[in-house]
Amino acid sequence: MTYRRRPSSLHAAAAGAALGWCAALALALIVQSNPVVLGALTLTIIAAGALAGVGAELLRALRLAVPLALTICLINALVSRNGLTVIWRFGDLPILGQTNVTLEATVYGAVFGLRAAALVLLGALYSLAVDPDQVLMLFRRWSFRSALSATIATRMVPVLLRDSKRLADAQRCRPGAAPGRLALMRATTAGVLDRALDVAAALEVRGYATAVHAPRRDRRAASRHDIGFSLAGAGVAIVAVVGRVAGWCPFSAYPLLRAPAGARELTVAFLLMALALAPFADRRGIRG
């Protein structure tokens, strides 16, 4: 799940604009809790992935996101003691004690799980559609080393995944009993440290430690994709924050469930979707 340039409006936008658009969606996911709005935002991310040509990869990310959402929902339903509408009585369970599952705790867990799943999908969309090298350039003016560390960490993920697959294959080749998990974990950690040392040495000899600020580049004129995604991101952020402050889409789970799905909630959901997806309509100059 790494960035590759593709023919889409999102890929054509500058990293700053694309990053801002992703950040606005993340903000909306955090400040909004109404299930209608959260559902609309999740659909928006999937649709954006499809329009950006990374739909298949996002579906693979869904395989991680859905179990995560279900786990959160299940744990909250079993652990939370809040809510008045009991839908299942388990009685006394070991460790958990008296366990009554309430509708409110289940819905609250589902909403929380949906938000987590949407954030996972958004993270996947970001890593597939926003050029990490451009992000590094963007941040190096303020905090070069932090930006570089973040980029290197991203870069190390596929390397470490390949390493762990190699280690797993090697262990499958061992006859007899498999080594214990602790031994494997120690070996993996040692491998990661070796890799990190190699990368650090490579960074040293490429002048990372003494990096100096380049003369400021001539500011590139913003493209219509940059403007489109910047405006869309600003619009999404404003609607989400104003909607939260004004209480347009209320949601509360305890003690009794209150999650209206009327015209106002649907309007806000539609508005967020339309704003976020509008820049994808401009495909002039995008060859696919």
Binding site: T2, Y3, R155, D198, A202
Partner: peptide
């Protein structure tokens, strides 16, 4: 300029 054995750990950027 320095070049090591393993090209994988020397490449730090995306493109």
């Amino acid at each position: 300029g320095t070049l090591f054995q393993d090209p994988e750990t020397q490449i730090v950027m995306g493109t």
